[in-house]
Simulated assay, not measured.
Amino acid sequence: MLVGYARTSSLEQEAGLEAQLRDLALLGCEKVFQEQVSAVGSRPELEAAIEFCREGDTLIVTKLDRLARSVRHMWEVLDRVRLKGAAVRIENLGINTSTPTGKLMLNILGGVAEFEREMMLERQREGIAKAKAEGRYKGRKPTARARTGEVLAMRAQGQSMSSIARALGIGKGSVVRAIHQAVRGGQHPTLL
């Protein structure tokens, strides 16, 4: 059985998801799993697709980046599919892991993709360092720190750290930091 998997990172990428679904249908996928989530977070539909695969099945994706976020993750997915007796096919690369050549090509391409990502991150770090040296890079504005007064007032009223975080739309860690800084600074020793 041909099993398809389609993914885009966000809801705004509707056209990309539709294109993947169209391509998977044209390839003859009998069962298709789809989701709109970041590759970094949990992907329940990918998990369901892998779980669904049986011996002799082929899991098809239109592009490698729809399947895995790194070479290590790619091999984890491939190993799980292989243990089920199934293969992975990456359509735009013409790679099918049911063949030794397909496995070799996937390993080479995955390594190149990871290398390119590392190079991009290195260039980004260099650009940020240069901008900082020239005084043009200030970084992200500390939004949670700007709400310290509100955090302290709400805590003084007896609200829990979790409820303060929810009410202000900031992380609980930011609330804890604001309170600890105030306590260490001697401003509000009783807030903990």
Rank of each mutant, 00 (worst) to 15 (best):
G173M: 15
E18H: 06
L168V: 05
G110P: 13
F115S: 06
L78F: 01
K172A: 10
R82K: 13
E126A: 10
L59Y: 10
E76P: 07
E35H: 04
L104P: 03
F115C: 03
V61F: 07
M161I: 12
V81P: 10
E51A: 15
A178I: 11
G102D: 04
G185N: 03
N92I: 13
V175Q: 07
D23P: 01
T62S: 08
G111F: 11
G4D: 04
R54M: 06
S162K: 11
I50A: 01
G85D: 13
A49M: 05
V32N: 02
H180P: 03
G41Y: 12
L26K: 13
A68D: 01
I108W: 00
L21I: 13
T143K: 15
S160I: 04
Q36T: 07
G4M: 06
G85M: 07
G185F: 07
S162T: 13
S98P: 00
G149Q: 04
E118H: 04
K84F: 05
S163D: 14
D65C: 02
G127E: 03
A113P: 14
L67S: 03
V77M: 02
A48G: 04
V61P: 15
E134W: 00
A19W: 08
G158T: 09
L67R: 03
A15T: 10
L21R: 14
E118V: 02
A165E: 10
L168A: 00
I108G: 04
M74L: 14
A129E: 14
Y5D: 10
P44I: 05
P189V: 04
R166F: 00
F52L: 03
E126N: 05
Y137L: 09
G16Q: 07
E14H: 11
L93F: 14
A6P: 09
E18A: 13
R72L: 12
I60R: 14
R147S: 11
T143M: 09
K130G: 06
E35D: 01
S70Q: 00
I60G: 01
V151Q: 11
D79Q: 15
V32G: 06
E14F: 03
E35Q: 02
P100I: 11
V81F: 15
E51H: 04
L168Q: 03
E122H: 09
T190A: 12
M161Q: 15
K138D: 02
R166V: 00
E150M: 06
L24P: 15
A144G: 07
I50T: 08
L168E: 00
N96L: 07
S162A: 15
R147I: 06
G149H: 07
E14N: 12
I95N: 10
A156K: 14
L109C: 10
L191V: 04
A39W: 05
C53E: 01
M120G: 06
R177T: 07
A15Q: 08
A178V: 10
T62L: 11
K130S: 13
V37S: 01
G186M: 11
M105H: 02
R145P: 05
V77L: 03
L78N: 08
K103V: 07
G56L: 11
G102K: 06
S162P: 11
L106V: 12
K130N: 07
D79F: 15
V112N: 09
R136E: 13
G185P: 08
P189N: 08
A86Y: 11
L46F: 05
E114I: 15
R54H: 12
V176K: 06
L59D: 09
E55W: 08
K63L: 01
L192I: 12
M1R: 10
L46W: 01
E35M: 00
E91T: 04
K31L: 00
Q20Y: 03
A153G: 05
I50L: 08
